[in-house]
Design a protein around this nucleic acid. Sequence first.
DNA 1: AAAGTCTGTGCAATCGATTGCGCAGACACC
DNA 2: GGTGTCTGCGCAATCGATTGCACAGACTTT
Lengths: 338, 338
Amino acid sequence: MVTVKDIANKLGVSPSTITRALADSTRISTRTKTLVRRTAAEMGYVADTAARTMRSRESTLIGLLIPDIENSFYAQIAKAFSDVCNAKGFQLTLAVSDDDASIEERHVRALVSARCAGIAIVPTASLSTQSAALLSSRNAAQLIRRNSALNLDWFGINDVEALRSATDRLLDLGHRRIGLLCGEAQLNSARDRYQGYRAALCERAAPFDPALVMRGPPRASFAQRAANKLKSAATPPSAIIAAGAGLSEGMLNAAASWSTAEQEAISLVGYCDCSAFRWWGESGLTAIDLPVRQIAGDLCSALIQRAQAKSEEPRRLEDHLYGSRLVLRGSLRFANPS
Amino acid sequence: MVTVKDIANKLGVSPSTITRALADSTRISTRTKTLVRRTAAEMGYVADTAARTMRSRESTLIGLLIPDIENSFYAQIAKAFSDVCNAKGFQLTLAVSDDDASIEERHVRALVSARCAGIAIVPTASLSTQSAALLSSRNAAQLIRRNSALNLDWFGINDVEALRSATDRLLDLGHRRIGLLCGEAQLNSARDRYQGYRAALCERAAPFDPALVMRGPPRASFAQRAANKLKSAATPPSAIIAAGAGLSEGMLNAAASWSTAEQEAISLVGYCDCSAFRWWGESGLTAIDLPVRQIAGDLCSALIQRAQAKSEEPRRLEDHLYGSRLVLRGSLRFANPS
DNA sequence: AAAGTCTGTGCAATCGATTGCGCAGACACC
DNA sequence: GGTGTCTGCGCAATCGATTGCACAGACTTT
């Protein structure tokens, strides 16, 4: 590895001159600067990030900790982070928790250890106390999901409203038995989604059947089983809403194995519109469209801004709430009069 | 930030004792170890990765540079890397080039600067000389795509064979006008795919019409336009193969906007099977199924192994070639006798 | 001509964890 | 008693880039 000292030796000057020349300091003659830069390029010099981080005590690393990267929803988040980081000269380090609290803790530790300038986390429901402690009083924020154990700003969706309006729409179409695939209640966000669903039913005086609500881990595998179970019930729902990204994936995987008749008998609603939803069936899946990129981009920008501002004053916690809208596609049908 | 020195001061011992206790050195008494560990935990100590990297001159960072993260294909690669890194105690840093050589070069520079233990790259067709120079003689390898400017090991698919067999299958079904969406010829991998297609046509003595081959940037946007153009041609093809992950996405986006009749008139074949392909139309998209996870996992493991072996002897370049198979789904039909 | 102002560089300390070497005390063995 | 041997721990250097301070020479001002 070529170091500053190597260049200095080659040119017969001191290391300080090299750094200053490369950093474009005003105290270095133009002639020297040009010479140094050319030599550095020739020698293939690349500054050592570790040394720089150490000396300056600040890194240009942004940590993103998500439960899944294969789901399009989280992939969109990662892309938004990548773009913002790119634009502002930061690097992205990606950590995938697989919705496992112990993996999550390892990652949190690694991100903190790397002295990330900022950390964004989509927390698991069972986030460890350790993780929470490690993140508190650091430049971190939670994204989409909100875990009350985490004393951090939150950037997310108005989930009550999102689910209420989706449910409302189904009621408009005459559906009375609406299935819900929903995450576990430890997360405020899953609770909100459930409550939105309940609120819509209540306001419209529609019957509520607990058997239609399937709660479980926010994974595709769970949703797939749950959706199949709903379909095969004695009196199956005429519509199903997946209240989560992983859950939508599982629901579609299940429904893809249904017969055409079965598919037509049940209207489906997904969470977070992704381009593959347009590939669903003949004319696409109806979905709750969230401004994911916007949210993730805003969060990433906020983290970077705070990192650069480095004000030490304790801030009050903030929630950043975003709206959503329903994108109507072929997967919604009028309920058959029963 | 709590440092080793802080713990040492608190316990009235030297910093060396702390490090050794935490590293479980044999020269430290069990009593001291326990004490140190408890104190470290209480004080919320987290080692500084930068300092450690600097001293040891080796990081636990694996860099992955891909053109896109929203495409399921690359997301699967990222997941495989994440899993392997996780299992071996490494961290993943993700860089997205958007198929732009200048962004790519910035990322390469950053990854090298971070002294990554290993770097995997899915190179752009127009990879800069700079990038190639930076990567050469480092622990790096190219993945899927192969750029001859890069003097690195390659882990990828037998693309000639993959495209030959897909084309063959379409010929079996009676198709004679088969469209091809393909990347630009600068990349060996794109060239291979094209050649596989040509080879199949040639062997079966099927006519070759250059107008059916759309070559361009490996992006969804290009493929979408190209697929639409093929469909609207005077004598449209009865089948289209997308010879790339991004191209498949674009092809489906285009086809999703076609009428049912139009969709039924053209058999589609995608590249790299992803779960969303099963959502396509009524019974899923036929696709060339690649062992992506396997490839990516193997590559990541190889990088880590080499990093740990740290042998200085120059190695010969190796190619790691994987096979593929066609997954048949509803998007394939017999050609209408014309 | 003396004093003041720039310019262009070098010196040396610093960031935090790690480790080779050395040292002191305890104990064993002949 | 003398000589090893082992255990437990401290000293100080090291990794590479950065930066406050100092300093030498050139040039300007009164």
